[in-house]
Design a binder for these strands. Sequence first.
DNA 1: CCCTATGTTCCCAA
DNA 2: CTTGGGAACATAGG
Length: 264
Amino acid sequence: MPELPEVETLCRQLRQVIVGAEITKTRIIDAKLGMITGIAGETVSGIRRHGKALAIELAGNRSLVLHFRMTGRLLWQHNGNGLLPHTRLVVSFVHGRVSLIDPRRFATVTVHKKGNGIPLGRDPLDDGDLSYLEEMAQHCTLPIKSFLMDQHRIAGIGNIYACEILHQARMDPWRRVNTLSPDEWKGIAEVMQKILSRAIACRGTSVSDWRDLFGKEGEYQGHLLVYSREGAACYGCGEEVIRKKLSGRGTYYCPTCQHGEGGS
DNA sequence: CCCTATGTTCCCAA
DNA sequence: CTTGGGAACATAGG
């Protein structure tokens, strides 16, 4: 479920609530997550995000790294009553608790030593210069959509935002990345930063069951131009928005506005 | 029963 | 080695 804007939303909200607080207890409800030991008594020193991964950093040299996959989310509760359905993990503090809720049980939690990160591509919000994308693409023949969603190249873009970025950049999702001009890369980079930052300002996209840390829906679903709009009229040209599979993922686009020699 | 789902990983083929 | 396709993971909803 969560892509970069949704994870960034959780990151910012967790900072308001648990940084500086001591973890009193951790409770694994789904054994599939594995054991988490020696965390109780630690103080949260910071919250960081890279791509779609969220790290709760501890005052020692360790961090709890969460990956939400398809349906994982976090919920902050002041009171510690019963568990909501699909709760897989609870991290308790004196003043409240954070629950990992995940119907499909694909989410992962791992304890990392400092400096032992998961190898990922650069995060598109780390700096303003995305020229590395064009360089990486020179000897690559992947379709642009697969390229943008490859977490080892750029970390954080998933299916919703890939569709939206390519639509606003007027780019055919099947276009091979080694055929893009410098101007086209410039357009992609600008649109990517614009869409991701606006989606963060909207606290993410609640097209299905995404909620922020406090249970509220995001608002970016009101700004989607193609995702989930199969059969509807393109806002740009009035033609029909199409959905086709690309690498197994539903790909929404306007064939009229998004041209190229990709053969969509 | 069918299909779909905001993600990642693994296996296999070309 | 690269890439692409499909299945798998587990569950809910249309």
